[in-house]
Every structure is written in structure tokens, then in C-alpha cells.
Amino acid sequence: MSAPTISPAPAPAASGSARPKARKPKKTGERLLHWFTWLIIIWLALPIAVVIAFSFNNPHGRFNYSWTGFTLKYWGPKLFAIPNLTTAMEHSLLVAVVATAGATILGTLAGLALGKYKFRGQGVTNLVQFACISAPEVVLGSSLATFFLQVRIQEGALTVIAAHIMFCVSFVAITVRARVVGLDPSVEEAARDLGASPWETFRLVTLPMIMPGVIAGAMLAFALSIDDFITTEFTSGSFMTYPLWIWSVSRQGLPPQVNVMGSIVFAVGVLFAIANSVISRRRAA
């Protein structure tokens, strides 16, 4: 799963004057930059391309590591031929959806508070958020495992969801806060002035205005949650998710279904990212 674009750049205002493109001879520097840009794009896209390519592979043994022929059979009914993998994927989707919803709600509220008000403990809240993001996940995961053990909470789906909400909240809060800081506070005052109650002001004015930040935060949270391995490993008990299942079988060889599912998750993520940027372009237009 690739991380979706966090905040799509607003579309440049369509200039009325259609200027004919004059082809000027390029300088060496420009040419280098051009090739370098493409090199970076290829470098970043290569692993994803391999995953997608090998989802069409027809391996002879258990290992899907060398190209042995093209097939579409794993994109059909055979996709769900491994019950454990299917269950693990379902678990991953469930956790990602619930954790995204939880983290988005909590993170949006936190981001609003941090961006709009000055309050006691604001600095500490900011610090803890960045600590959450920068702390090594192994440390975070093992601490959580210790904590759940100490307070005798049975590890499973709920502990995984709780852990995912915890590490996703900071990302949502930070993207939302960035949006809130850029808002003109008099727009909310204008809504109040025109007779909107505090709740109506939030629903009709504030929320629509911070929506791009909320959506970007939610997409980030989903992307982080669905492929999380370390924290999940520490907090899952016997609860199996997609990344955990892949790890558990990787020594015996990975079936092409793993690639197919990975490609689908990736494609859905890309679609969301494109949709988000199209919508924000429309808003901007």
C-alpha cells in the first residue's frame, strides 16, 4: 500500500490567455533535471510495479519469485482460494476502517483545538503528538504489549484497533491543524453574526472548510493502518491480519494471491487519492 498524496496542490487558476507553447532550446541543467525527475519516479514506482507484475505470474512451485508465465487465474475466483489469507485481509480491512473512523474523529477534534485555541497543556499535547510519530514503532508496540498484559486485557481485534487509533490520531491532528491555522477566524465569526449557533457554525462553515485536511488525514490513517506490521504484531494475540499472515508464510513461499490483494489495495488507494485531488480541484475552480 502506498501512502496517498497528503494534500493535493490546489489547481493553478486556469489562465484565460491560451499561450502557444514556444519550444525553446533547453539548457543542460534543465535537461538533467528532467531526466533526474523521471529517474526518481521510476525508482519509487519500481517495487509497486513488481508486485503488480507478479500478481499475473503463474508460478510452478510455492515460490512466486521468478517469472514463469502469464496468467489471469489469480484475479478470478482463485483469489479467495486460501481461507486464512481471505480472513486476514478481512481483519485488516475491518481494523483499517474502524481505526480510520476513530482516528479521524479524535484527530479532527484535537487538530481544531490545537489550531484555534490557546490553552494550558497545548505545548505538551503538541510534543506528545510528535513523539508518537517519531518514536520507534518497536518501542511503541512492545510498550503497548506490556501495558495490555499489565492491565490484563485480552489481546485481539480490539487491542489492535485501539493501538492503530493511537498511532493514527497524531497524523490526522497534524494535517487538520495545518488547515485550521490557515483559516480566517472572521469567517466563523461571520457565520455566528448571521445567526448560526455554534453547532451550525461548525457543521456549515468550519467543517466544510477543513474537509480537505480531514480527508487527507483519514487517507493517511487508512494507509498506515492497513499495512501496519510491528505494532499489530505486538498487540494482536492470535488475531491475524494481512501483513501478519504474509510474514507468517513468507518462509514457505508467498502465493500470487498476496500480490493480487496488495495490488487491489494499492489501486483503491490510488483511486481515492485521484478522487480527492479531482474534488479539491473542482472546489478550487
Binding site: 480566517d184 472572521s186 469567517v187 455566528r192 453574526d193
Partner: peptide, 20 residues
């Protein structure tokens, strides 16, 4: 009396229009 219950309206320096 809070602003939304006062029968006066304001035009803001930054206009404060609702962009959406």
C-alpha cells in the same frame, strides 16, 4: 446576548465570505 442572537450584522474587513 451572543452574536447570533443580536439583530445587528457585520461586514468584515477581510469580507469573510464562505469559500465553499
Amino acid at each position: 446576548v451572543p452574536p447570533h442572537k443580536r439583530d445587528v450584522n457585520m461586514v468584515f474587513q477581510s469580507y469573510a465570505l464562505f469559500p465553499h
